[in-house]
Amino acid sequence: MNERYSRQERFQPIGKKGQAGIRDAHILIVGAGALGAANAEMLVRAGVGRLTMIDRDYVEISNLHRQHLYSESDAIAKLPKTIAAEKRLKEINSEVIVESVVMDVNGQNIEEHVSGKTIIIDAVDNLETRLIVNDAATKHNIPFIVGACVSSYGLGFPMIPGNGPCLHCLIDHLPAQSETCDTVGVIGPIVQMVAAHQVTASLKFITGKSLPPILHSMDIWKNERAEIHVGMLKNPSCSSCGTDPVFPYLSLENQTKAEVLCGRNTVQIRAGAQRIFQLEDMGKRLAELSCEEIVQNQYLLSCRYDGYRIVLFKDGRALVHGTNDLYKARAVFQRITG
């Protein structure tokens, strides 16, 4: 008997059979920030066979209060998150095959990483990418364990294809903006709580337990929780999971697009479908983000943020001045718009 998992095997709903299932699982975690790190550590300790992590970012010192896999030396070396995660996870459990992918997820590159996985864990930091992964999950018939958190608030939802609504049924449009940890902050405990629910859902799925379509939320600071059975929100004509799906977020025209404006040291970003900026609300948000030199008129909003001048137009377009780097411009855009 492998002593390593003996206490987990003694837990009756898992047992030796469940542990074998966990060992056979190949889990994909999209995002290696706070939720990604927390999910990865628990899953690797639980003995999953293979774990793949995708992330576009590198470790920064401001991550360390909540992203438990990373250390000061990772931040100083500016290591890509998945590389730093792989190093640490292999120290924790050398039996697990850990694969790291440094990549900015989009509708064109996600599918190759999704196929063949047992479960996909949501650890992304914005709703648009979440809907891209949702489309890939429904298309490839793979459970997508949704989780998100900011401030002291978090939510979870197990998206099981064919068993209730998909995320797109629940989120019919991208909101003009949403809170992020850059605007309202985030505390470590809510990350662990959301991730604990995600890992539990994953272990239940792997061991053959049913996961009803219940959306749940919690605020660990206010000690509040909510649960809604969202089965009735399944949309039979949903373009992601309905009878005739087209997986809109996997196609180019619905995605945020970035292009370099030649000779201007500027990147133009066009937000994905159905996104319009409400400039007044956005102005308040920019002030919260400590943007400087905020100028607003009825057509646009301009500010200076993190060394860039950014101009947001009402129609969902933005110009990021001061770079020709699409990746950097998109990252700044998403930090501002959430």
Binding site: V124, N126, A148, C149, S178, T180, S217
Partner: peptide, 10 residues
């Protein structure tokens, strides 16, 4: 009343 709002972060 149960009220759940979506957030972006993670």
């Amino acid at each position: 009343i149960e009220m759940i709002h979506f957030v972006g972060g993670g």
